[in-house]
Structures are given as structure tokens and as C-alpha cells.
């Protein structure tokens, strides 16, 4: 599925899962970087993209809707087939192999060899913004907004940490064509994660 319709010379097409959440912000960032972006709510739409972003939102709602409308299994198959996927916040939860503090019956798509805890910092009163040093991106630091954010509690051997808080807790990971962040670059004007993701998408569809 990944890259099946892609012309390597053309700008890649990135889908943004648009079941719920801040998908418009992701679409704007991707378009700002000169690539095509379109919302994905249906299986047919998934087949037309070279990469997918799973936005911030409520993971339990995305899970229910993706299963109710038959997207979950094709998404899992696409991830297994190498489709590049970037998940922010709820998107990170959707990509985690194991979800802690899930609601009853909640499932994730999986793909990232990590255990992610929902609402790991507490309620909205504990939501915060801070600067993160990310060696891969250099200066300036990434300004990160954490909103009822999840955390990567266990990092499996296949996944690599991209960013940690000062206390060492992991808040961004990469594994092959998958990226997950606990925070929301899409609402702060931070474009480096999306640019990095587009590089992965171009590499995968070349």
C-alpha cells in the first residue's frame, strides 16, 4: 500500500487521520512544507497516501471510530507493510504496542515497540509547555506543548528515543518508518518533526 501510487519525483502525499482531533493543524504544517496533505477517514483514502499522520485528540475515540468504520485492520496492515506513520499525543498512543491506563476494551494499532501510559502527567492542571533538547535537530531546542500527554514508559529494543525530559523520561521515539511524540509540534510552528517525517516518507516511496 505504501508508496504504491507514488511517483518518486513528485511531492509525496501525506494523509492525516481525520476521525477526531487537531488534524487541520497537521495538514497546514505539511502543506507549508510543500507536500500534499489530505484528510483520511475511509479505507479508500488510506490507499492513496504515501505516509500518514495520526493527530492529537482523544485516543479512545480514534480507536472506536477506526474500528467501527473498518479502518483499524487496513491501518495495521499498512503499518506492518512499512507505511511511514507519525503520531502526536493520541497518535503516539495509537502506535504503541502496549497502552497503559487505557479505557476498558481500548485497542491500539501498534507498530512501536513501546509501552505508553495515557494521561501520564495527570489532568489538565498538569499540562505544560517546555523546551526540549533534541540532538538530531540541534539548535534551537524544540518548544513542546504537553496536553494531558502520554509518556513512553518502557522503550523496547526495536525503538529509539528521540527526546527525553530532564528527568530522563522518554517523550519522542522512532522505529523504522514510525515516529511518535508525546507533544504537539503542530500547534507551535515547530516544523522539524514534520520535515523529518517527510524525509522518511520520500525515502520509503522512492
Amino acid at each position: 500500500m505504501a508508496g504504491s501510487t507514488a511517483d518518486a519525483s513528485a511531492a509525496p502525499t501525506v494523509g492525516v487521520l481525520a476521525l477526531q482531533g487537531d488534524f487541520r493543524e497537521h495538514i497546514a504544517v505539511i502543506r507549508g512544507l510543500g507536500a500534499e496533505a489530505r484528510p483520511v477517514r475511509r479505507v479508500e483514502e488510506l490507499a492513496e497516501v504515501d505516509g500518514l499522520i495520526i493527530p492529537g485528540g482523544e485516543s479512545s475515540v480514534m480507536d472506536k471510530l477506526s474500528r467501527a468504520f473498518g479502518l483499524a485492520d487496513p491501518l495495521k496492515a499498512a503499518i506492518a507493510g512499512g507505511l511511514p506513520v507519525y503520531g502526536t499525543c493520541a497518535g503516539l498512543i495509537m502506535l504503541a504496542d502496549t497502552v497503559l491506563d487505557a479505557i476498558e476494551g481500548q485497542q491500539s494499532l501498534g507498530g512501536l515497540d513501546v509501552s505508553v501510559r495515557r494521561n501520564a502527567f495527570g489532568n489538565q492542571l498538569d499540562s505544560f509547555e517546555t523546551d526540549l533538547e533534541i540532538p538530531e535537530f540541534g539548535d534551537p531546542p524544540v518548544h513542546a506543548v504537553f496536553i494531558r500527554a502520554p509518556i513512553v514508559e518502557e522503550l523496547g529494543p526495536k525503538a529509539t528515543a528521540l527526546a527525553t525530559l530532564d528527568d530522563g523520561r522518554v517523550v519522542a521515539v522512532r522505529q523504522g518508518n514510525l515516529i511518535g511524540t508525546s507533544f504537539h509540534p503542530e500547534i507551535t510552528g515547530e516544523i522539524r518533526f514534520h520535515r523529518h517525517f517527510l524525509d522518511i516518507v520520500r525515502g520509503a516511496s522512492a
Partner: peptide, 26 residues
């Protein structure tokens, strides 16, 4: 806020941000 994390709570961005994440929802 978790004691070991340095960061700003209760900012406009954090307050408005939660609403951004509720979009498209009921």
C-alpha cells in the same frame, strides 16, 4: 505538575490547546 519536570503550566497555549484536541468530537 510532576515535580521533576521544568515547564510552564496554565499558559494560554496549554489552555487553548486542550480545546484544539477536542475538535471533531462530542
Amino acid at each position: 505538575m510532576t515535580d521533576s519536570t521544568e515547564g510552564s503550566i496554565g499558559t494560554s497555549r496549554v489552555k487553548r490547546g486542550l480545546a484544539e484536541m477536542l475538535k471533531g468530537g462530542v
